[in-house]
Nucleic acid binder design. Structure first.
Length: 360
DNA sequence: CGGATTTGACCAGCGC
DNA sequence: GCGCTGGTCAAATCCG
């Protein structure tokens, strides 16, 4: 019986929906499109959010594209990764992105870890009976275990990111009360882009591992699914092209890294949140609330995170557990059940915390 | 044939 | 200390 549901569960698990908005009510009505850029809205933009918000957003996106995707991402990643094996009680991280170099920030791993709980739980409502018609989050997951859970008729599946440098994990189980609802718990973070970004952003980007090639149709299907839900088609097109341009720009930096990194970038950017204005504001508001504790300035977050959160579009952006129900209905088949597409509400501050807590 | 999945075994944490 | 439970490992198996 458990085995029966696993194919479906697996596929559904792969269809990890966008990370939750800050309010649960949006789950039923709103659609989420990949657009992490919205979370980069400045406070000023957020405050001015109103009738002309969309126009302002577009210009904002343009501005962000030109400033955010200036190329420091990879160096940031490399810098961050260089600490992975480093020991010591305290590490000093200087996020130097070259042009937008924020002042070096000293982090205490202990503090970071205590503050940041790298777990993020999502409730996902899937399309009934359609285990195959699912979107992908651009990541590739490998299932490493399955366990029957007490008081639950459904087993829990354990997935790990296939990227050897990435320790992201997720657990997927079907809700007991709702057959079409999955409970996905993310843990850890991705130190790379999603695969779909590579596909969307670079038109293939050139070169490629077998993994990437495998994901290509899946990511394309996911993108198509996202577009079907798109209400603001013009904006979506603009964003897609912008991210494509951004990806192309990154390609010039390092082809090999691009293969890993760019895909995530696109996945994060190809979706757009219908209520992105509000969420973007909320996200920044949340970031502002916490930055004082970390000692990270708002500008620091804005600059470094704008890039890093693309590099690490992890669901783990908020401490503690956040549950949200979203609907994941993709008309396209999911060729690779072990991968999934997610839209992320990027949270600058927590993104940093998530990265650091995993790096140390 | 290589990579992904399955699945039983093993281990660690927790409560009693 | 013991048993229960959740999480992970790894050999076997499957699949493209």
């Amino acid at each position: 019986m458990q085995q029966l549901g696993m194919e479906e569960l697996q596929g559904s698990a792969a269809a990890v929906p966008p990370p939750p908005p800050l309010d649960d009510e949006s789950s039923s009505s709103s659609k989420y499109y990949y657009c992490n850029m919205m979370t980069m809205m400045s406070d000023a933009e957020a405050a001015a959010d109103g009738s002309g918000a969309r126009r302002r957003r577009e210009s904002m996106v343009n501005k962000l594209i030109s400033t955010v995707y200036s190329g420091p991402t990879i160096s940031d990643i490399e810098s961050a990764l260089s600490f992975t094996g480093a020991g010591g009680d305290q590490q000093q991280i200087a996020m130097d992105d070259g042009r937008n170099s924020p002042p070096p920030v000293v982090f205490s791993p202990e503090k970071v870890l205590s503050k940041m709980e790298n777990k993020y739980t999502l409730k996902i409502k899937t399309c009934g009976g359609n285990g195959g018609g699912l979107a992908e989050d651009g990541y590739k997951w490998r299932k490493y275990g399955q366990k029957s859970i007490k008081n639950s008729p459904n087993p829990r599946s354990y997935y790990r990111c296939t990227n050897p440098r990435c320790n992201a994990k997720k657990q997927v189980e079907r809700a007991t009360d709702e057959a079409d609802t999955l409970i996905v718990t993310y843990e850890g973070l991705h130190l790379h882009y999603t695969y779909s970004h590579f596909l969307l952003g670079g038109g293939g980007g050139g070169g490629g591992s077998s993994k990437k090639a495998k994901l290509h149709p899946a990511a394309a299907a996911a993108a198509a699914a996202a577009q079907q839900e798109e209400e603001d088609e013009q904006q979506q097109m603009q964003l897609s092209s912008q991210h494509a341009a951004a990806a192309a720009q990154q390609e010039e930096e390092d082809e090999q890294q691009q293969m890993l990194l760019s895909s995530q970038h696109a996945a994060a950017g190809c979706y757009q949140e219908e209520e992105e204005e509000d969420h973007g504001v909320a996200l920044f508001a949340a970031a502002d609330q916490h930055r004082d504790n970390s000692g990270i300035t708002h500008d620091d977050n804005r600059r470094t995170n704008g890039l890093l959160e693309d590099v690490v579009p992890l669901l783990v952006r908020r401490p503690g557990l956040v549950s949200t129900t979203t609907t994941s209905c993709s008309p396209s088949p999911a060729p690779s059940p072990s991968s999934s597409v997610s839209a992320w509400n990027h949270h600058p501050y927590y993104m940093d915390m998530a990265i650091l807590s995993n790096i140390f």
